[in-house]
Nucleic acid binder design. Structure first.
Ligand SMILES: [Mn+2]
Ligand SMILES: [Mn+2]
Ligand SMILES: [Zn+2]
Ligand SMILES: [Zn+2]
Lengths: 142, 142
DNA sequence: TAATAATTGAGATTAAATCTCAATTATATG
DNA sequence: CATATAATTGAGATTTAATCTCAATTATTA
């Protein structure tokens, strides 16, 4: 069985929620998938406002939220508290350089296991987490 | 040598920054310290707007930022993305119940050590971090 | 193809936070 | 203590991200 493309996942989500499959929604998803790793909603708004088929700011906000509810994107908060979106792939956490803003993604199994153990000791059932480490990247630390 | 009270720390900060020690700033700090563990800025605004000496919304926002810059308080984002402030004490991370909103503070040395090791392996110099685990608390999980 | 419900765009609105500026107050100095 | 100076405050205006409104348009279903 072939793994569903993000596109197909989104269509399946829209169907399951009784939402219409509109060109606006699909074009916004396309633009999201065309972004570099981390993007802001204004990046999408700017693109859609001067695209061949113009799409309004309100619709971009609405569709981004729909895509987020579908579990296909999520956001973290930058140093300046801006929402920084990314496509959801494998779970990972973030290191963020306070100097240049660089975002490093990382994943560590021991860390995840330890987190689960700590939760258990508190009678807490973990569902998801975010961890952001702020500091200086290789380039900026010297 | 006696450890400085938060009050003294704030005064020292204001002096070091050439900022004036005003009754408004000190009263807002007092109110902050009188809060329960986690509070919203509106809690402070409400209190100050009907206190004996009324203090304006603008001044509360300005002073909270000053107290934050002094390193005496910080905030995390709730499930609804609201800013939740707390007085800075020992470093800790948070578990947040998705059902009732309960916030559990925890600290684990192994976790911190592991984080540092992971940073080192990425050539990253950590300065601070936030970790929020969302899930279900003891009461809500059943 | 027609009926129905969902979606869209454009501008209005909201809410958190910041800004403006005249009036007030803290601080430094003699 | 009195005065000069610079910082701060309050009240309302403004900003910004995000949401809402509603008439016109479009997707879906039958
Ligand atoms: Mn990422
Ligand atoms: Mn806390
Ligand atoms: Zn850097
Ligand atoms: Zn709970």
């Amino acid at each position: 069985m072939k793994k569903k493309s993000t596109h197909e996942q989104f269509v399946a989500y829209l169907r399951s929620e009784g939402k219409n499959i509109t060109p606006e929604r699909m074009l916004i998803l396309d633009e999201v998938l065309a972004q570099k790793a981390h993007f802001k909603i204004d990046d999408i708004i700017d693109k859609m406002s001067c695209a061949e088929k113009k799409i309004s700011r309100a619709t971009v906000y609405r569709s981004i939220k729909t895509i987020e509810n579908a579990g296909l994107i999520k956001y973290i908060r930058s140093i300046n508290d801006e929402k920084i979106y990314e496509v959801v792939k494998k779970h990972h956490d973030h290191m963020i350089c306070e100097s240049c803003g660089k975002i490093i993604e990382f994943h560590d199994n021991d860390l995840e296991t330890l987190q689960d153990a700590i939760c258990e000791s508190h009678g807490f059932v973990p569902q998801r987490h975010t961890m952001k480490i702020f500091g200086l990247c290789e380039k900026c630390k010297s």
